[in-house]
């Protein structure tokens, strides 16, 4: 059986290995992804984002229990940061998910950002597609702990859950642009902590203002209070996600189409960028010039970055 058939049959080892090749951007991976692509589109993708330590991994763990009880299979992609100095990483999201290690219906993969900004990794979308093709019903994607501007997840997931905790800043934080705009569902985790009511009030204001100005096509983001570590509020979160899913499927799936268009556009641009870069780098290589030589020439002002790239695009030999 070839690697593609193995993945379609749900083989864990084959899937794990292909995910690695995607992560390492091995050129031979594209033919595999091409063959898997027609088999994607069945899974429901839920993204979790929020600052470090708000409880994203614990929520993912709890929701996995929720979906397993319904007999659904779950794929999890969890992102942690790469060291900007050594390129190494410690991936620790699994610590919160130990109970699922021996469950055949759950596949967990830890990923490192590897210098990519935006909350995900360069190849998260390809990996989602592989888990989808291997037959996972639900895919939970946990972003790296984010700050204010890492909004990529909204272009990858059907439903984006923004997780916060009480006392994470004042009203001005809540009206800033960026991350606070992408939540389809807001979760206030650790809701037993002081300041919980104030946080909820601020989120309500934020959501109401947002709806007045742009709206989410008739979707009003709910605020769910949870204490993930005690399994409190998980059923409610599960219901809220289901409601958003129903919303996407309503009106002849017109809202779902918007999400699919966003995902497809993102992926097309990703592959385009990657391949364009690869092709141009190859042109440099074929000319027998080292990238560093070009850099040196730019430093010496004998050329400039714009002319170099223009030449490469025109494929004119210098």
């Amino acid at each position: 059986m070839g690697i593609v058939d193995q993945i379609l049959a749900g083989d864990v080892r084959a899937t794990a290995r292909v995910l690695r090749d995607i992560d390492d951007q091995v050129p031979t991976i594209h033919p595999i992804l091409k063959q898997l692509y027609p088999h994607t589109g069945k899974a429901f993708i839920i993204g979790f984002t929020g600052s470090p330590g708000v409880g994203k991994s614990t929520l993912v763990d709890q929701l996995t229990i929720h979906y397993r009880k319904q007999g659904l299979t779950v794929g999890i992609l969890a992102v942690d940061p790469t060291s900007p100095f050594t390129g190494g990483a410690i991936l620790g999201d699994r610590i919160r998910m130990q109970r699922h290690f021996l469950d055949d219906g759950v596949f967990i993969r830890s990923l490192a950002t590897r210098g990519h900004f935006g909350g995900l990794t360069k190849s998260t979308n390809d990996m989602i597609n592989v888990l989808d093709a291997m037959g996972k019903d639900i895919i939970l994607v946990e972003t790296v702990g984010v700050g204010q501007d890492e909004v990529e997840i909204a272009n990858s997931a059907h439903t984006t859950v923004l997780v916060t905790i009480p006392g994470m800043g004042d009203e001005v934080q809540a009206i800033k642009a960026g991350i606070m705009e992408i939540g389809n569902i807001f979760v206030v985790n650790k809701a037993d902590r002081e300041g919980s009511r104030k946080t909820i009030r601020e989120l309500m204001n934020l959501i109401e203002l947002g709806l007045r100005h742009q709206g989410q096509n008739g979707w009003e983001p709910p605020i769910i209070q949870t204490e993930a570590i005690k399994s409190r509020g998980i059923e409610e979160l599960g219901e809220a996600i289901q409601k958003h899913r129903d919303f996407l499927l309503a009106n002849d799936k017109s809202n779902l189409r918007d999400v699919l268009v966003k995902r497809a556009r993102t992926q097309l641009l990703e592959v385009l960028k990657e391949e364009a870069l690869r092709t141009l780098m190859k042109r440099i290589e074929t000319r027998g010039i080292a990238l560093d030589t070009l850099v040196d020439q730019i430093v010496e002002k004998s050329t400039d970055p714009y002319s170099v790239v223009q030449d490469l695009l025109n494929n004119e030999l210098p």
Binding site: V12, A16, A89, L91, G92, R94, I95, F101, S110
Partner: peptide
């Protein structure tokens, strides 16, 4: 890149994690 899974792991959990990762 180091995956760390915490304490009290059975050999079964360890091998399953190693393969998935």
């Amino acid at each position: 890149e180091v995956v760390y899974t915490g304490c009290h792991q059975t050999p079964e959990q360890i091998v399953s994690t190693a393969i998935q990762e």
